[in-house]
Design a protein around this nucleic acid. Structure first.
Lengths: 347, 347
DNA sequence: AGAAAAAATAAAAACGTTTTCGTGTTAATA
DNA sequence: TATTAACACGAAAACGTTTTTATTTTTTCT
């Protein structure tokens, strides 16, 4: 089968002995060209399966219809749901999604942004890498904004840069989650969280504090474990179980909660009778672990949709380019067996 | 902060009162332009943060340095690891990855391909949607191949189209998995699989048959459950447990295996003593379920890397555009507690 | 038949590059 | 001093579109 590269206007013009402009107009069915020639050209174009070259269009229109998305990782339930939401909206509005992974590295984030900012995309949707959050260096974002490229941040955001954002109310959601533990009868509640510079981890920790305070519980720092990376995770959780006694545990993500629950069960504790668990993110892990894990659903796909909608709005309607909004995506607490204590346990 | 759009060669040329070509050459440090002007232009360009417009380059070079990836879904451990592998290689070679989701729909697959084939990408990496596999309609692939656009298929592939492929030896891997069950002492082994048109499900089913045959076991069709979609999944698995007795189960993905194991435990069966389980795909579910699930690691990231390497090779070296290879990515069986029977159970 | 109006088509510019080729200036050589 | 070589730069083409403007052809009217 001989290779037949996509045919161009120029080739059609040459073949049919008319000018390029006539071909262009005929294909777009302009009244400017006689019905005769129009039909002839259209038939020819159809036969050779003519399709306008996207790159040429991008250059001419100075818009690519591409959205650049930069996330820390993709093998991750929450981030992949967000992508899914972004893709759905983008696709429905004729945009494509270019995905780059920062792998939690500041440098990769910067490089990827520069790579895409040279005309490859019309706007960015980004969730900050851990390193960026730790460094607090946001110049690369300010730069693209100065160049007039719209930017939407989601989930891991910062106050230091002024743009559209889509987040959940992490503090409130954590507050709600901890309250589920409290209502289920937990009196001493442990927390497995991240280091503080991860904005969402910090905010969820705040919610934990607030919930305990409002319930009149004292916050015991010994019940709080801050995990830097997932490597030594199980180790640190196991230590907690060995040194402290508690009857409820909140993990700021589903991995922490599920891991802790597993360790507890392996130690012979009954869930939820002896200890109740709740996590964050309603991923496959929460649904499939034993017992099923109560959790806070973040609705990542909605967050992705919201982010994409805001971005596309800015792209197609640059009038309000200076008014930014922060959309709070509603979370919902999903109560499953891991917090379902019978009433007899309560008192 | 006033918006300062990216500066162009033309603007630099006008500002410095030289020709566009001189600016272009100076920036690429050509000896053709005097050191004086070169330095002047370079300084100016650097000051205004000049970067060549990617779209213009794409048009000129007739290559976009974009790879189009079309997968059925992204909220899925295996597919996201593949993306991760693709992205790593692509990024290291200066390519960007455009991701489209077919959502298992033939039409979306076709539309996405057409959308990208109009010049937006240099080549495709695709895993077939369920609908496409069911319809066996591969014309859209033949078309892009005829247009000279390289294509690599991975995981869900078909013999009907001739191109580079990256797969695992599903039959062999399933054979190995079932043998783990057999070695662990299982005598009656059930299978939870997909409907036959899913190539990988079918091949894994073959491996199951082969393993039983080679071990001298009879294949009992009543022990085989074919799941169409995940909706009624738990229901159908529960029925199996109610109507049949068996002491080993192989699930063609980790979700099937984990779900079945959960149901078994809820029914009071001990794992692995009463019944052993093994799955496919080493995702978070396998690692975190109780007990941890033995499984076949597919090494999705390696598959993604292999696919990306083959594609980029074809892109940068179109000489061998007619020689296609199928790379078999090695799988590895990971034995965890779910098949770890003490010897006393064996005989 | 000739002029004016209308219709059909073509030319050219623009989007931002790179590159080939051409031209003019200066320096080196006979 | 005349000829050539080296050097520095500019013009133009090309990638594939769309759109504005210009030109040609046809039709209509007196």
């Amino acid at each position: 089968m001989a290779i037949r590269r996509q045919i161009t206007l120029k080739e059609i013009a040459r073949e049919l002995d008319v000018s390029i402009s006539t071909v262009s107009k005929a294909i777009r069915n302009s009244q400017e060209v006689s019905l005769d020639t129009r039909e002839k050209i259209q038939a020819f174009a159809k036969f050779y399966n003519y399709r306008p070259n996207n790159i040429a269009l991008s250059l001419k229109n100075r818009r690519t219809k591409n959205i650049g998305v930069i996330i820390p990782e993709i093998v991750h339930h929450f981030f992949s749901t967000v992508i899914s939401g972004i893709e759905r909206i983008a696709n429905s509005k004729g945009y494509n999604v270019i995905i780059c992974l920062s792998e939690e590295s500041f440098d990769k984030e910067v490089i990827n942004m520069e790579m895409l900012a040279n005309g490859s995309i019309d706007g960015f949707i980004v969730s900050l890498s851990k390193e960026t959050l730790a460094k607090k260096d946001y110049r690369h974002f300010q730069e693209v904004l100065n160049e007039g490229i719209p930017l939407v941040l989601f989930d891991r955001v910062t106050d230091e840069i002024n743009c559209d954002k889509a987040i959940v109310d992490d503090t409130q959601a954590a507050y709600d989650a901890v309250n589920v533990l409290i209502r289920s009868g937990s009196k001493k509640i442990a927390l497995i969280t991240t280091v503080d510079y991860i904005s969402v981890g910090y905010l969820r920790t705040l919610g934990y504090h607030k919930a305990l305070n409002d319930a009149g519980f004292v916050v015991n720092p010994d019940l709080i474990v801050k995990i830097e990376d997932t490597e030594g995770c199980n180790q640190k959780i196991a230590e907690l179980f060995q040194t402290e006694r508690f009857d409820g545990l909140f993990g700021v993500n589903e991995f922490f909660a599920a891991s802790a629950m597993k360790i507890a069960r392996d130690m012979g504790l009954k869930v939820p009778e002896d200890i109740a668990f709740i996590g964050f993110t309603d991923g496959i892990l929460s649904k499939c672990s034993s017992p099923p894990l109560s959790t806070v659903a973040q609705h990542g796909d909605e967050m992705g949709e919201a982010a994409a909608k805001m971005l596309i709005e800015k792209l197609e309607n640059p009038i309000n380019s200076e008014v930014f909004q922060t959309q709070i995506i509603a979370t919902s607490v999903i109560e499953r067996e891991s917090t379902a204590r019978a009433m007899s346990y309560m008192n």
